[in-house]
Design a binder for these strands. Sequence first.
DNA 1: TTCTAAATGCGAAAACTTCTCATTCCGTTC
DNA 2: GAACGGAATGAGAAGTTTTCGCATTTAGAA
Lengths: 151, 151
Amino acid sequence: MESQDLKRAGLKATLPRLKILKFLEESKQRHMSAEEVYKALLEAGDEVGLATIYRVLTQFESAGLVTRHHFDEGHSVFELNLGEHHDHIVCVRCGRVDEFVDEIIEERQHRIAEEKGYEMTDHALYIYGICPDCRKTQGRGPRTQGRGKAN
Amino acid sequence: MESQDLKRAGLKATLPRLKILKFLEESKQRHMSAEEVYKALLEAGDEVGLATIYRVLTQFESAGLVTRHHFDEGHSVFELNLGEHHDHIVCVRCGRVDEFVDEIIEERQHRIAEEKGYEMTDHALYIYGICPDCRKTQGRGPRTQGRGKAN
DNA sequence: TTCTAAATGCGAAAACTTCTCATTCCGTTC
DNA sequence: GAACGGAATGAGAAGTTTTCGCATTTAGAA
């Protein structure tokens, strides 16, 4: 009964919220756009308005249940928080996303914020590259759509 | 004569492109949205269509003259490339942006990409926090608009 | 100066996200 | 378990940011 999860997060356990949370938990994809959640629920016969999806995901974010990411795509993707923090490495060819944690980087970030006089609240680290599969398939991968990003 | 810069980048030296490049070079702000460039040029009497701004900035990006960033704001900001790579620390209160370079983090990133089998093409690291000025002014900073971001 | 491909401007439109407000639902009270 | 009140939802309108289409203009070569 995950309505408890919602209550604990300070949210009323409504049907749409339960459906969305359940979907995020059961989906094999970790990173979903609002649109993707919408379509997936539609197909599953659970119709939830797109505006509601956006509202709920934003609430989930405020409640700490999910994290919103801005990869290089122009729209937000959401990820269920499972406790452990991690960063992402994203394939610029096919969109595949892998995760990693690096204590040394974490530590350096805190130090840098401190040196600059900032009170660090958060951070985002994305590495972009070509994933192992796409490197084999030199002739350009499935979801061709890559743009650089650095500095 | 920066038309040479454009030629060198493989771009025809048109008036709009020259104006935009000149503006980016002379602006004290390093990170500008398309809209901001548009308005600034307007005020300076150099009218350039917004669509052109977007087109030109995208071309500049492809040519390696500028870098496009997606901070936590929902729109892109562009930064003139001055050679040296760096990452950013962004104030979630007032929007201030500071820059830093950390060799250790750079090195770890390459190592991680390698371990994961990726061919690294790029990366983006943003630290979010509250800048020294906003920490003093506890009662909420100027451009209040903050959202977390992590994982 | 003339010519041609490329670039621009403008408005329309697409993509993503938020807002408005009437209707419905949750959860508490009786 | 029916009634109530405030919160949540749905649907569409509207807001933002960005791209597109096409007629017109421009850069640069002849």
